[in-house]
Design a protein around this nucleic acid. Structure first.
Length: 640
RNA sequence: GCCCAUAUAGCUCAGGCGGUAGAGCACUUCCUUGGUAAGGAAGAGGUCAUCGGUUCGAUUCCGAUUAUGGGCACCA
């Protein structure tokens, strides 16, 4: 007879096997109604699950994270149900839960789902939910399931089952006239689904392979209560206000135009930020033993053939024909850095050699891939290649990771960081033994640095595995910024060598590394991170000096001159406008310091200091105001 | 590259079932010299993305192209 232990430690004994729903009912009517699923000995099950042995049981409701997942999963089914009702010829494929919601992919050859269809589908979903249709779990044999879905004309479902190995028993869920293959669990009835919204339609390849048919994906969100949904929608709206494309326009930082897709026109204020972070990094790596170099933009195709780029990266390269030869605009610096390395005889004593370069790279990105500053066709990386001996890999990797973490702290990125180890891709250079070696070395160095990371199979570069440092944008999309790549192949292909201790020629190992990744992308992330309110060291204009009336004009000019002399990016606003008007304008332009000057200040040689946030820092002498600004500049973007 | 959507003034956006367009902000001029988030008035500003088709007439309807947006695929 099952003895059920509840989370609070209390025990309930039943004289016969019971379902999760029955246990919930025995506790209370409210809980019985709220129960969406159960967790028996840690395993998530339907409320119809029968418990026959002594077990631990948690009744899962919409308030639990698992319950919310069940809601979203069931809402995906409800979406499929509604689509099948309205568009009987659509075929179902997969419908997983994702962050904040779910999606469902359909194959619908007869047409496409429009925004208006979305509204109709959503209405139908509410209708089906209101009917409170029981959701019934059934076990079915693999072969039977294939036949079942084949007969329904659901070819994709049949394919999915065919790929499930062995003869294991599968489960299907029936709700009214709709049946879907699913592992479950699901809500007991469709009535549990009330708070949901379809968000957008998009294309998505069957099985994520661009050689396959493009399916139609419908994204939705679902919540346990109306308040959470509203909060989510507000969060989205707020996040969109931080969009770097919007802020970039508003703050006049850069623009893009049709004649140069994916290439940035940097405006004066944007270029200050760009120069600022570039100079910052330039100094940073100099201290770490790097040497900055500059190599050609246009290099004969023969070098790219030797390096392997022509074979494995050609689609991403811009090729230029001249009368006698073919050149490629460089998409990466590495082959050129190897040329500098080779220009001279290197001893093992010279290693490591660290060459850095910030020059522009061009990559012919797919037209649909471009995205503001985040994904562009012309970019500059804080790129460097470290040539070292096998026994130096560990230390060099560790040193770079420390550099990167230190840099990220200066921008306040401590929580936002996701680290991945991307291993050998299908299209690659070199033999597997080298890849084994390289992958191991990278994962060891991450472990040594005490960093948590996830492994991403097949996502490495064609010449070697890589560590990826990802930062999130305002709506949670992740962008790879920093990277550390270990390359045993390219130095060998391009015949780089050094003289070892035993006087023999040895091939150096090459580390490709960047902390920002592309400056463009990093600035995009920065804009969203700060919502345009840059810390003082990056702010394009650090202080504006404002007069109250014309009378103070000479004094304002004196203050601005003083600040500029001291290296502050200061300017005056002498317009014939009211002070509140000017303050509003510069506040919206995210100028960190507003120095107001009226007769009182002009007479006493002082300024009244107001910050972008609206704080009044009081009256200060010019020197004291300068000290305030400089102290803030020195902090950079550090949180701690 | 693929799917869907979008493209109107410097910016944010209206509008038109076919008769060449409108607001707010910004801009220019004038009045106002005002102490910490919008003072007032007047004026100027558009080949309605590009190219084609239908039509007496297209910014509007149709098609193509380009770019952008959301996804997918690919990648920093």
């Amino acid at each position: 007879m099952p003895m059920i232990t509840l989370p609070d430690g209390s025990k309930k004994e039943f004289d016969k096997p019971v379902t999760v729903a029955e246990v919930a009912a025995s506790i209370g009517a409210g809980l019985a109604k709220a129960a969406l699923a159960g967790k028996v000995n840690g395993k998530l099950v339907d409320t119809s699950h029968v418990i026959s042995d002594d077990s631990d049981l948690v009744i899962v409701t919409g308030r639990d994270p698992e319950g919310l997942e069940v809601i979203r999963h069931s809402t995906a089914h409800l979406l499929a149900h509604a689509v099948k009702t309205l568009f009987p010829k659509a075929q179902v494929t997969i419908g997983p839960v994702i962050e904040d919601g779910f999606y469902y992919d359909f194959s619908y050859q007869e047409g496409t789902f429009s925004i208006e269809d979305l509204a109709r589908i959503e209405e139908k979903m509410h209708e089906l939910a209101a009917k409170n249709i029981p959701v019934v779990r059934k076990e079915i044999k693999r072969e039977e399931a294939i036949k079942f879905f084949r007969d329904l004309g659901e070819i994709y479902k049949a394919k999915i089952i065919e790929d499930i190995p062995g003869s294991e028993t599968l489960t299907i869920y029936e709700q009214g006239d709709f049946t879907d293959l699913c592992r479950g669990p699901h809500t007991p009835t469709t009535g549990a689904l009330k708070i949901f919204k379809l968000m957008k339609v998009a294309g998505a390849y069957w099985r994520g392979d661009s050689n396959n048919e493009m399916l139609q994906r419908i994204y939705g969100t679902a919540w346990n209560d109306k308040k959470s949904l509203d909060e989510y929608l507000t969060r989205l709206e707020e996040a969109e206000k931080r969009d770097h494309r919007k802020i970039g326009k508003h703050l006049d930082l850069f623009h893009l135009q049709e004649e140069a897709p994916g290439m940035i026109f940097w405006h004066p204020h944007g270029w200050i930020i760009y120069q600022q972070i570039k100079q910052y990094m330039s100094q940073k790596i100099l201290q770490d033993g790097y040497q900055e170099i500059q190599t050609p933009q246009l290099v004969d195709i023969s070098l790219w053939e030797k390096s392997g780029h022509a074979e494995l990266f050609k689609d991403d390269m811009f090729i230029v024909d001249t009368e006698n030869s073919q050149y490629a605009i460089k998409p990466m610096n590495c082959p050129c850095h190897i040329q500098v390395f080779k220009n001279g005889l290197r001893s093992y004593r010279d290693l490591p050699i660290r060459y850095a370069e910030f020059s522009n790279l061009h990559r012919n990105e797919a037209s649909g891939a471009m995205h503001g500053l985040m994904r562009v066709r012309q970019l500059a990386q804080d790129d460097a290649h470290i040539f070292c001996r096998e026994d130096q890999i560990q230390e060099e990797s560790y040193k770079f990771i420390q550099l990167l973490l230190d840099v990220y702290k200066d921008f306040g990125f401590e929580e936002n960081l996701t680290i991945r180890l991307a291993t050998r891709p299908d299209k690659r250079l070199g033999d597997d033994a080298l890849w084994d070696h390289a992958e191991k070395a990278l994962s060891e160095s991450l472990k040594h640095a005490g960093l948590a990371f996830e492994v991403r199979p097949k996502e490495g570069a064609f010449y070697g595995p890589k560590i990826e440092f990802h930062l999130k944008d305002c709506i949670g999309r992740m962008w790879q910024c920093g990277t550390l790549q270990l390359d045993y192949n390219m130095p060998n292909r391009l015949e780089a060598y050094y003289i070892g201790e035993d006087s023999s020629k040895k091939v150096p190992v090459m580390l490709h590394r960047a902390a920002f990744g592309s400056l463009e992308r990093f600035i995009g992330i920065l804009i969203e991170h700060y919502a345009g309110k840059f810390p003082v060291w990056l702010a394009p204009v650090q202080a504006v000096v404002l007069n109250i009336t014309d009378k103070q004009t000479p004094y304002v000019e004196k203050v601005v001159g003083f600040l500029k002399n001291q290296g502050i990016r200061a300017k005056s606003d002498l317009r014939n406008e009211k002070i509140s008007y000017k303050i509003r304008e510069h506040t919206l332009q995210c100028v960190p310091y507003l120095l107001v000057v009226g007769d009182r200040e002009a007479e006493a040689n002082t300024v009244s200091v107001r910050t972008q946030r609206g704080e009044d820092l009081g009256i200060h002498s010019m020197e004291a105001a300068l000290a305030l600004i400089n102290a803030e500049i020195a902090k950079k973007g550090r949180i701690h």
